[in-house]
Write a protein that binds this DNA or RNA. Structure first.
Lengths: 162, 162
DNA sequence: TAATAGTTGAGTAAAATGCTGGGTTATTGC
DNA sequence: GCAATAACCCAGCATTTTACTCAACTATTA
């Protein structure tokens, strides 16, 4: 079992999509800036999210990604699973052949833990997260910073022209 | 956050200790055979368990390891922590400086998950596991197999003498 | 004094992670 | 039509971790 940057980034990016859903398709470049995630790495993650039909893409200028389903229909567990980070705590992936084809002494413990984690994460949807005040606050800060950096870039561009 | 063979082995070994506590100190060689864990790897894990005072060692022939405290006083969370597998799901280890010194958008989610996991694992003691029927059954099978392999070895030894 | 078993440290193949870079393809607005 | 945009795809790669081995040393007991 592991939860690393990969799974966290995937959830972060999906949540960013959900939070900016009303402004049309969201480009990976925007997510990259707002969430501080490498663009190329995002592309890899979205290839997997697309394969699991969690997002739909729109090509060309003004394009980007949309959630394939309603935010209330997508659980955090689904997103983490999609980027192939197994939240299964057992060694044998639940098969029970952990020790020479037989069950190992801690199998049931890890199985219980897996159930616990999966239950927790599959009960939380993106819509739940979008509704949270603490998350809305962070989102607002990120949007302001984004707008500010965008202004700076324009200044830099005009500086180059002069 | 991660739970790999390292943490699982540590719990497995500690549980083996708890299950064979009445037969005096348990050698790592025995645990190695019964649980199918490399002896040298066990040595490294027990160095950490010893540093956290979860086990006490007895040197010399007939020696081995004992639990430093009663099995009812040792939680699974303590054991996993001891071999430095952090069960913390946040990127910033709870500090809240995940994104450029500020909090990231998914911080609270992973914090909640961490609490969930920690709560679950720290509520389970080695004594709880020892009492479980399913675990007792696996333990019995392992002990029988151990006795059988021990007999085989003796036969091999006497064969060499002849 | 030999056997046992803990203690310590160095090294290592394999895998995963997080990331970079270079290219291609589809779509849009001018 | 033609750039600009942004999704797509692929190959590589430094770093870290994992799980493990080997080798030596030390304390204890029969």
């Amino acid at each position: 079992m592991r939860l690393t940057t990969k799974g966290r980034y995937a959830v972060t990016a999906m949540l960013d999509l959900a939070l900016h859903a009303d402004a049309g398709p969201v480009s990976l470049a925007d997510i990259s800036v707002r969430q501080g995630i490498s663009l190329s790495y995002l592309e890899q993650l979205f290839a997997k999210l697309r394969r699991q039909v969690l997002v739909k893409s729109v090509r060309g200028p003004g394009g980007g990604y949309r959630l394939a389903a309603d935010a209330a229909e997508v659980s955090v567990a689904q997103v983490v699973d999609a980027v192939s980070e197994s939240m299964d705590a057992t060694r044998c992936r639940g098969k029970g052949d952990c020790q020479d084809g037989e069950i190992c002494i801690t199998h049931h413990l890890w199985q219980d833990l897996s159930g616990q984690i999966h239950g927790f994460l599959s009960n939380i949807t993106l819509a739940d997260l979008v509704r949270r005040r603490d998350i809305q606050a962070v989102c607002e800060r990120q949007d302001n910073l984004y707008a500010q950096q965008h202004r700076d870039q324009q200044i830099l561009c005009s500086d180059l022209v002069n």
